[in-house]
Design a protein around this nucleic acid. Structure first.
Ligand code: SF4
Ligand code: SF4
Lengths: 161, 161
DNA sequence: TTTATTATGGATATAACAGATCCGTATTAA
DNA sequence: TTAATACGGATCTGTTATATCCATAATAAA
């Protein structure tokens, strides 16, 4: 259970775009050089980001990528969901097996098949809670917030001198 | 980014063990029938759980598995970490590339190579925060807490009748 | 002690996925 | 028109998840 390298690349690419949006249209060449990733591979990732409306792309001379919306509106969750997909963290594989009657039997209830129906599954309830929690946190952090912090930190270093 | 089926199986197996610890030593046969998983595969998972001290196992006639400690001391995090491993959610793949000088340059600081050193990386800071958050939540939920809730819910259903 | 039972671990097979590359095509600005 | 650039399909490789089989070890009961 780990984020893929693609997510790593996507985040860094976006940070670069967010940082250098003075001159628009950063090419895949510049990006791939910065991240030490092949152009081919990174372009796939950028395509995904474009399809999901995170960046804009323009081909041709002096073409390249730019953020499709302000960096403070691009959250970590946005990026992660584009790259990793939007499946749930936990998906029950056998809700129609005898398995979850285990939970039903805990109360020694006669109507065994009724109690923890899939819509009210207690295992999924815990896992979904974890996922909501995680999402809330990741929504609170944006490309811009990281850039801001970097800026603050470096200013601090300057002042110390 | 999803939990594996093995984690699903492990959780359900432990819930079963926690539920039926009246008579000790639940065999792999009973477990695999309950979960609709092959004995071979489930036994690998149980072995992992045993190696990590979550369950005890005893071979031979009337052998089987039992929880190695009270169900309220077995957290979701414990189980997930045994099965999924303990790697970090996010691991930077290229801290020695030019990449993270991006963050250093944000403040236009002369000493570019000093600023966001790996130990103080702002991307990892966000991701580690997310992970801590997730772990805290998963530590608060145990095998027992799910069984308790199932019990409560079923009692409630009984009272309604 | 013997035997039936049960867990263990190694080897292996398969499918899916991540990571990566190549290349022909489409699109745009100069 | 042309040079530069992004796009998307096909493909390749290595790794991991899932799964099975079998020989061996350990244990309790007879
Ligand atoms: S209890 Fe929940 S997770 Fe388990 S089998 Fe039923 S629906 Fe699936
Ligand atoms: S900024 Fe952080 S995540 Fe990015 S390359 Fe540097 S150490 Fe790695």
């Amino acid at each position: 259970m780990q984020f893929s390298k693609s997510t790593d690349y996507a985040l860094h690419a976006l940070l670069h775009l967010g940082h250098s949006d003075r001159r628009n249209n950063v090419g895949i060449k510049e990006l791939s050089a910065r991240l030490s990733v092949s152009e081919s591979y990174l372009s796939k990732i950028m395509s995904k980001l474009r399809q999901d409306g995170i960046v804009r792309a323009v081909p041709g001379v002096n073409g390249g990528y730019e953020l499709a919306r302000p960096a403070e509106q691009i959250t970590f969750l946005d990026v992660i969901q584009v790259i990793e997909g939007r499946q749930q963290l936990f998906e029950c594989s056998n809700s129609n097996s005898q398995q979850h009657q285990l939970l039903a039997e805990a109360g020694a209830v006669p109507s065994e098949q009724e109690c923890p129906k899939k819509s009210g599954c207690l295992v999924e309830k815990v896992m979904d809670g974890a996922e909501q929690n995680l999402h809330r946190y990741l929504r609170e952090h944006t490309i811009q917030s990281v850039l801001d912090e970097a800026f603050k930190r470096c200013n601090h270093e300057v002042n110390k001198k």
